[in-house]
Every structure is written in structure tokens, then in C-alpha cells.
Design a protein around this nucleic acid. Structure first.
Lengths: 211, 211
DNA sequence: AGGCCCCCTGTACTTCGGTACAGTTATTTT
DNA sequence: AAAATAACTGTACCGAAGTACAGGGGGCCT
């Protein structure tokens, strides 16, 4: 892998001491500066100004400097801001005041096509997902799961991913015949006539027709 | 940071040579094995069996081994599978046959709360996002309609209601054969293999796979 | 012990979905 | 005038989906 050319972008254009420590040859730019002459940067670091929407900022950066991977640094990181950054195709989100070693690792990850989310947000995502899976049999509002046996729920979820009977069979280590049995049970219990409706119900688009 | 205890899970339970090279002390488990006695692992690597839905696999692993960070290895990586993995709260997705150094970096990233997405998927996400910003300030995410002719849109919407070809034909006053023609065109233009995916896309659950 | 539910499998059948041939008509674009 | 696009129809074929018979084993409850 080639050496990345780092470019730090902040309101004032100054380089934080730790940034310079992490990447001695990094370039510093102000938000309004034009693209630097010569060999362009290959990796952008954007220090987020306080209280501004991130999407337009990132969009403009891309327009001016090319569609480069961009790492967002926030003085006061919070999960919602992080999500906004990733929605705007940021590649990483971390604290402005992170240690140089940390910054270097983030850079390496991003340079190799990785995404740096940070622990707080990651935990939230994992929590959300596991909670859904754990508590969905009991309630979760739409109650389709409550009508189905555990095995049938697995089948229903696979259907919602678009899996064929054969794929589900391989996935669960059973025969296609048995999958058809479960599918049939799911159809009857949810009161629908085909798997497409099952997919819509599991995806939350429709409600089950059953009592 | 403490040393992570790695646990590789595959169908056969064997450790690939490069896994062992990357993590000499890693534990190998089969899919069906129970949790190992003693100090449990802190990081799971799951080698994905061919053609199986991932969500149930990951859910069951979490049930059995605890809610640990999980890295998914795929013999034939593709973007859709990767998305399914992240939807199931996987922390990383990469090629089974990746080099030891690569695996070690993935592990380090995950151990520090990062997410490893891989270049292919990342490029797609970045592309998608930048395209959205460029071409649809008005409507967002509903790009499926833009790809289809008016008639095809009608058919696509009917599909999302769960209508059969025969019903669509009666509804539009045309033959079933013609409906099939339109359905075929919709499938091709949206880049999906069956009407179920069309229903999910039109319902806003999925994005179109096409350029 | 009998009844109930869950999970699993097999054979055989019908219907539906999707595609591959092969066309027609009308409108628009180049 | 030719080419491209949209809409439409027909026959035919294959595989997937779903159903209808037929069973098997195990666990739980009264």
C-alpha cells in the first residue's frame, strides 16, 4: 500500500499538535481554501465546526477536492452526529483530540477500505440488533413472531431476505421438504397466501391478517 | 488493550492454515459445537457456509457463545451478503482466504470498536450516497421509479401489493403474457431475481441493485 | 396412557413465476 | 428513412412454490 497524503481541514486551517505528531507531512487547509496545487491529497480529515449540518460540508469537499475518503473529527462526538456523517459517506468518525497512535490506526483502516465507527455508536447498533432478536417473540408491536414457532420464525426471516426454499433448507441444515412444511405453516398462521406477503409482514410493511 | 481470545467457527471446525498463521493460539470450533469450557473467547470468526442466510447463524452464535463481536469470513464475498451480515450486527466482513496480516488488522480494528466493511461495499455506499446528492434533491431513496417506464411502474406497484400476474392482468386490462413481459423488464432494470425483491424495493425496505 | 405441539422426511401433484423463442403496432428520435 | 423505445400478444418450457397425501421421533401436560 502506498503512503497516503493526508490533508487536514479545519475552520482556521491550523494543524492540531497531535495531528502533526501523527502525520508529520500532513497538509493543513481551511474550509474555504481551494484544492492545493501539485499532487493532490488522498485522504481527507475534516474537523467539524460546531453546530453545522455535515452533509453539505462533505458534499462540497467532494466537489472541490474529488471523491476522496473522508474522516470526520468532532470536538464533541455524539452518536447522532456520527450517523449523519456516515449517511454522508464519511469513512470514519472520531474525536478531534484522539491520540496520535489512534489517528494513525484510523487512517490505516480507512486507507484499506474500512469504516471506523467508534465504540459508542457500535455498541448502540449491536444492542439495538440483539434486542430486536431477543425480544421479538414476545412483543415488538407487530406480533407476527408471536404467532410462529421458533423454527417458523427463522424461516419467515429468511423469506424476508429473499431466500428460496432451497437456500433456506441449506441454511438450516434440513431438507427442502421440511422448509415447505414450515412455509406452509407460516402462511396459514399469518393468514396470507404466499411468501411475498410474509416478506412484507416481516419487514414491517404490512400487518398480519390473522387474529 | 488486552490480548483477544480468538475463536474460529467453520462447518468442519478445522483451522485454515492462514488463520493459524495469523493467530497461533486461536481456537477452532464447528458450527454445532457448544461453548468451550474455561475462559471463553472474546472474538468470533465465522466462516460462512455456502448459500445460507446469515441472520439465523449469527443469532444462534450469539445465543450460544454470548454477545461477542463477530467477524464474518466468506469464501465468495459479495455485497449483498455483506449487507446481510452487517444487518445482523456483524463487525466485519472479509474474504476467507485473506492474508494473515490482513486478518490481524481486521481483528485489531474490531477489537477497538471499528467496523470492517471491505472495499467493494464501501465503494458502493460512497457511490450511492454521492449519486443521491447529485441527482435527487427532490425525492430521496425512491429512485426505483426513475428506472422504469410508466407501465412498468404500475406493474411494480401492483407487485408490491402482492398481486399475482393474473390479477395484475385483469387490473390493467391486458393479458397475463404481457404482464410477464413487464415483470421481466422490471426485474432486469432493478437488477433483482424475483418479484419478492421488487416488492421490498418498492416498499422502501431495500434499495435497487442497479446502476 | 393419550393428546397435543414441534420438528423432521418422502412422493406426487398443481399452479405460478420467469424466460426463450417469435412476432405486431404506434410513437419518437436521429 | 431508419432506428430506437414502449406497449402488446402468442406458444412453449422449466423450475420454484405450494398443497395433499403419507409417515417418523421427541417433549410436555393432564
Amino acid at each position: 500500500m502506498k503512503q497516503a497524503r493526508h490533508c487536514f481541514i479545519s475552520e482556521s486551517g491550523e494543524l492540531q499538535a497531535r495531528w502533526q505528531e501523527a502525520f508529520p507531512q500532513a497538509l493543513g487547509l481551511r474550509l474555504a481554501d481551494p484544492a492545493p496545487a501539485g499532487a493532490g491529497p488522498t485522504l481527507l480529515w475534516l474537523r467539524l465546526p460546531q453546530g453545522r449540518p455535515v452533509a453539505p460540508l462533505l458534499a462540497e469537499l467532494r466537489r472541490r477536492l474529488g471523491n476522496l475518503p473522508c474522516i470526520v473529527l468532532s470536538d464533541l462526538p455524539d452518536d447522532d452526529q456520527a450517523l449523519a456523517c456516515f449517511a454522508a459517506a464519511a469513512r470514519a468518525y472520531c474525536n478531534t483530540h484522539a491520540a496520535p497512535a489512534y489517528l494513525r490506526q484510523v487512517a490505516e483502516v480507512v486507507a484499506q477500505g474500512g469504516l471506523w465507527i467508534g465504540e459508542s455508536l457500535m455498541n448502540r447498533l449491536v444492542d439495538a440488533t440483539s434486542r430486536v432478536e431477543v425480544k421479538s417473540p414476545s412483543e415488538s408491536g407487530n406480533s407476527w413472531a408471536a404467532l410462529l414457532s421458533p423454527r417458523e420464525q427463522e424461516v419467515a426471516r429468511a423469506i424476508a431476505e429473499g431466500a428460496s426454499n432451497k437456500e433456506i433448507a441449506r441454511g438450516l441444515g434440513i431438507t427442502e421438504r421440511t422448509v415447505k412444511l414450515h412455509v406452509g405453516a407460516v402462511l396459514e398462521k399469518l393468514g396470507v397466501r404466499d411468501r411475498l406477503q410474509v416478506a412484507l409482514i416481516v419487514s414491517g410493511v404490512r400487518q398480519s391478517q390473522s387474529a
